[in-house]
Computed example of a mutant assay.
Amino acid sequence: MAPERDVVGREIGRERMPAGATATTRPRARLDQPRPRRPRILPEWDPEAFGKLSERIARFIGTGRFLVWMTIVIVVWVLWNVSAPAGLRFDEYPFIFLTLMLSLQASYAAPLILLAQNRQDDRARVELEQDRKQNERSIADTEYLTREVAALRIGLGEVATRDWMRSELQDVVRELQDGHPDGHRVFPADRSGVRDVDDR
């Protein structure tokens, strides 16, 4: 008995494959699993540790101690190869091996110093950016405080102080007393029984 087939001709009941897919299609990578490590030809190193080591070497090369030790090594090298017996000399008069060693030291020292300078430039750039942001925050805080102080001054200009109230009350009392010759009757006499039409 032949298996049932759908309109396209695929067997019904089997796992359906998307249109256009073939048996040679590569399986999709699973996103829930880490990718396997690929073998590396070049050795791996920690850039931060290497940068710190280069800074330490560059800092040592820039000291007087390094110059003193290098001078001592060169003097001992030259004296040994000039005054030692012929069988014990390892670098004759033109001192080719010494020149090679100094060239090798210089060829390594220059990139190490450049690497240390690049790291120092990166640190200076980060510090400059942080200083710029701190200055912007300080300027914003200063402007805010300036606006607050100005608002307080404006508000205090509208507040009645004790001295101002005292002077105003004294002026009112003086005006009331000046209006009456006896100086004691500040308010008019009580007119009992008389209706005040104006108070309506």
Results as ranks from 00 to 15, higher is better:
residue 121 D to M: 03
residue 4 E to G: 06
residue 29 A to N: 04
residue 48 E to H: 06
residue 34 P to D: 12
residue 47 P to T: 13
residue 199 D to H: 11
residue 24 T to G: 08
residue 32 D to Y: 05
residue 193 G to V: 08
residue 11 E to H: 00
residue 90 F to V: 11
residue 7 V to M: 02
residue 144 Y to V: 12
residue 24 T to R: 08
residue 179 G to I: 00
residue 90 F to E: 07
residue 195 R to N: 11
residue 106 A to V: 05
residue 152 L to P: 00
residue 14 R to S: 14
residue 186 V to F: 07
residue 164 W to K: 12
residue 1 M to K: 09
residue 4 E to L: 14
residue 127 E to L: 07
residue 158 E to G: 13
residue 20 G to F: 08
residue 111 P to F: 11
residue 21 A to M: 12
residue 145 L to M: 15
residue 113 I to A: 06
residue 136 E to K: 12
residue 83 S to V: 12
residue 150 A to N: 15
residue 51 G to A: 09
residue 182 D to K: 05
residue 141 D to F: 02
residue 5 R to N: 05
residue 32 D to V: 03
residue 74 I to S: 08
residue 65 R to W: 09
residue 20 G to N: 11
residue 78 V to W: 05
residue 162 R to G: 02
residue 34 P to E: 13
residue 106 A to F: 03
residue 152 L to H: 05
residue 140 A to G: 13
residue 38 R to F: 03
residue 47 P to A: 13
residue 172 V to C: 12
residue 143 E to H: 14
residue 34 P to C: 07
residue 111 P to E: 10
residue 23 A to F: 10
residue 43 P to M: 08
residue 111 P to C: 06
residue 112 L to I: 14
residue 22 T to I: 07
residue 48 E to C: 05
residue 197 V to A: 13
residue 63 T to N: 10
residue 100 L to M: 15
residue 75 V to A: 13
residue 128 L to T: 02
residue 170 Q to W: 02
residue 71 T to P: 04
residue 31 L to A: 04
residue 188 P to C: 08
residue 166 R to L: 15
residue 81 N to K: 00
residue 61 I to C: 11
residue 200 R to G: 03
residue 194 V to H: 12
residue 38 R to N: 03
residue 81 N to T: 03
residue 174 R to G: 09
residue 93 Y to C: 01
residue 194 V to I: 14
residue 111 P to D: 09
residue 127 E to S: 05
residue 196 D to G: 11
residue 72 I to A: 08
residue 192 S to R: 10
residue 149 V to W: 00
residue 148 E to L: 15
residue 195 R to F: 13
residue 62 G to W: 01
residue 4 E to C: 04
residue 191 R to G: 11
residue 190 D to T: 11
residue 65 R to T: 14
residue 25 T to I: 08
residue 74 I to P: 03
residue 137 R to V: 15
residue 123 R to V: 08
residue 180 H to M: 07
residue 192 S to Y: 06
residue 58 A to R: 00
residue 176 L to K: 04
residue 109 A to I: 11
residue 117 Q to Y: 01
residue 19 A to Q: 14
residue 167 S to Y: 01
residue 176 L to M: 09
residue 96 I to R: 14
residue 41 I to P: 01
residue 166 R to H: 12
residue 5 R to L: 15
residue 52 K to P: 01
residue 24 T to V: 07
residue 117 Q to E: 08
residue 122 D to E: 15
residue 176 L to N: 03
residue 9 G to Q: 00
residue 8 V to R: 15
residue 185 R to K: 12
residue 198 D to F: 00
residue 172 V to D: 13
residue 200 R to Y: 11
residue 48 E to I: 10
residue 185 R to F: 15
residue 23 A to C: 08
residue 107 S to Y: 12
residue 95 F to Q: 09
residue 98 L to K: 02
residue 64 G to H: 09
residue 42 L to C: 09
residue 139 I to G: 07
residue 57 I to N: 07
residue 71 T to W: 06
residue 121 D to T: 01
residue 154 I to H: 05
residue 122 D to L: 10
residue 161 T to L: 04
residue 198 D to K: 01
residue 71 T to I: 07
residue 48 E to P: 03
residue 199 D to F: 07
residue 21 A to L: 11
residue 67 L to I: 09
residue 96 I to S: 13
residue 160 A to D: 14
residue 175 E to A: 06
residue 91 D to M: 04
residue 73 V to A: 11
residue 15 E to T: 12
residue 9 G to R: 00
residue 34 P to M: 09
residue 78 V to Y: 04
residue 199 D to M: 10
residue 14 R to E: 14
residue 141 D to W: 01
residue 100 L to C: 10
residue 162 R to A: 12
residue 188 P to V: 07
residue 19 A to C: 10
residue 88 L to T: 00
residue 42 L to S: 10
